[in-house]
Design a binder for these strands. Structure first.
Lengths: 112, 112
DNA sequence: TTCCATACTTACAAAAAGGTTAGTACTATA
DNA sequence: TATAGTACTAACCTTTTTGTAAGTATGGAA
């Protein structure tokens, strides 16, 4: 007698991914880095609402989790950029599905 | 001269979707409801870590946003169930991508 | 020499999210 | 008659997340 019901929580794939991408800003940062590497000041301009603190904090956790790579030019005044890692790029299909869901959802609520 | 850079934040598709699915539990609830409608007590058994309060609260916001539909049998003692709406089902591709991302990510960190 | 820009960091405060406990009202079962 | 199960709800508290403001150190331009 098998239990075909799938209990979820602790360490399931959905949880793993939402932990990595949770919060208000991580997906937006990943999305902006997808076309090309960007310096922090460029990111800030593309995501005007983010505070400097959150930008640094989220970049750090994205680097720590391996989705983003920091490149230091070693110049003075400081120059760095951030780019997606190979695994970071693999978040793009999630973002694409989220975008197409949003379109469908907006249609839905417009039509009621 | 066009601005090809895509500023994000306020009302962009990524934000719309993450607002709808944000939090620790919504995706897990949607995932459990996908195969079949469930009563709250069944959901609670499938997601053991969730508190009753969060379950009710999240079911309510999922109903309010139209992703889930509540069906009341009108019996005493109370009997209800929750099921995905048509638009609720359209979150499944997002979840599928999140699952396959998690697999790739786990592989990645195992290999270093 | 004052100002701005670079990339951060820190202390503190506010807001949001999540959890605990208890309580409602009803029925069926032991 | 006590207990457990149904589906909620509300008060309260803790934790997490996010934001604000200021400060570090450097160099170049006005």
């Amino acid at each position: 007698m098998e239990n075909k019901e799938l209990k979820v929580t602790a360490r399931c794939p959905i949880r793993t991914t939402s932990d990595l991408l949770s919060g208000k800003w991580k997906l937006l940062i990943l999305y902006q880095l997808a076309p090309k590497a960007l310096r922090p000041s460029q990111l800030k301009r593309l995501i005007p609402d983010i505070s400097e603190k959150m930008l640094n904090q989220e970049l750090k956790t994205l680097c720590d989790s391996g989705l983003v790579v920091r490149y230091n030019y070693g110049e003075v005044p400081p120059k760095v950029h951030y780019e997606l890692s190979a695994i970071g790029y693999k978040t793009m299909p999630i973002i694409a599905e989220m975008q197409s869901f949003a379109m469908a959802y907006e249609e839905e609520i417009k039509t009621n």
